[in-house]
């Protein structure tokens, strides 16, 4: 465990990078995912189609492939971002598909009468989506969205393959410089847990707080 204690500042720095990567990507993924879920239930056929193509294409490609493709492939056609920004773009695009599917499932749990009442008041589709349907949909999918978030914490490790100095990056680096893989990876696991466990508690608390009274 000396390896971890001796490198505590490095571990804390790397934990912050992982946390930043996760939180920023998740906020963007929520934005993308909500929008795409809206597309997928929209009355406009081309939007539904666009949403489906995006979800099926991105969700079914390994994240590692997406990251490499974006960083090395897209660079060659002129789309070039820093490695850190690239990691956020890919992580949020990828996680966005899971958010979209989760939110869509949430939308399906909202009683159809709610949307009918909103339409009867003269709300447009986007108004009824954002004012009536989505707020209720989100309440029923807090837990699954939490799982998406926790999966993202762990998926963010793949950013270490494109020069982003997160927890996994540090793990690989220390393993090689100290020759103590077990201690180092237990250290990494501990800091990942440090991020994931409180997230889980926060999600549970939030879920109870927003539960719809029925």
């Amino acid at each position: 465990m000396h390896v971890v204690l001796d490198n505590l500042p490095a571990f804390l720095r790397a934990t912050r990078v992982t946390a930043q990567l996760t939180v920023i990507s998740f906020l963007l993924a929520m934005l993308i995912g909500t929008l795409v879920a809206g597309f997928r239930v929209s009355p406009v056929l081309p939007l539904r189609w666009l949403g489906t193509v995006y979800v099926e294409l991105v969700r079914n490609t390994p994240l590692l492939v997406l990251i490499s493709l974006f960083v090395f492939g897209f660079t060659k056609i002129g789309i070039r971002y820093s490695y850190y920004a690239s990691a956020i773009i890919v992580l949020s695009t990828y996680t966005g598909t899971f958010v979209a599917e989760t939110v869509r499932a949430g939308i399906n749990t909202v009683a159809p009468g709610q949307a009918e009442a909103a339409r009867s008041l003269g709300l447009t589709f986007s108004q009824l989506l954002f004012a009536v349907v989505l707020p209720q949909a989100f309440r029923s999918v807090v837990a699954p969205l939490g799982s998406v978030f926790i999966a993202l914490i762990k998926n963010s490790a793949l950013a270490s393959t494109i020069a982003v100095m997160d927890l996994s990056f540090l793990g690989t680096q220390l393993t090689n410089s100290t020759g103590r893989p077990v201690a180092v990876f237990m250290g990494s696991a501990f800091f990942y847990l440090l991020l994931a466990l409180p997230s889980g508690w926060a999600i549970g608390w939030f879920e109870r707080r927003v539960a719809v009274k029925r």
């Binding site: 009468g113 709610q114 009918e116 009442a117 009867s120 209720q136 309440r139 719809v212």
Partner: peptide, 14 residues
């Protein structure tokens, strides 16, 4: 401009 009242009320639950 057309008000509608439903059998099952359909008040916005949230």
């Amino acid at each position: 401009d057309v008000g509608m009242v439903f059998q099952s009320f359909n008040l916005f639950a949230h």
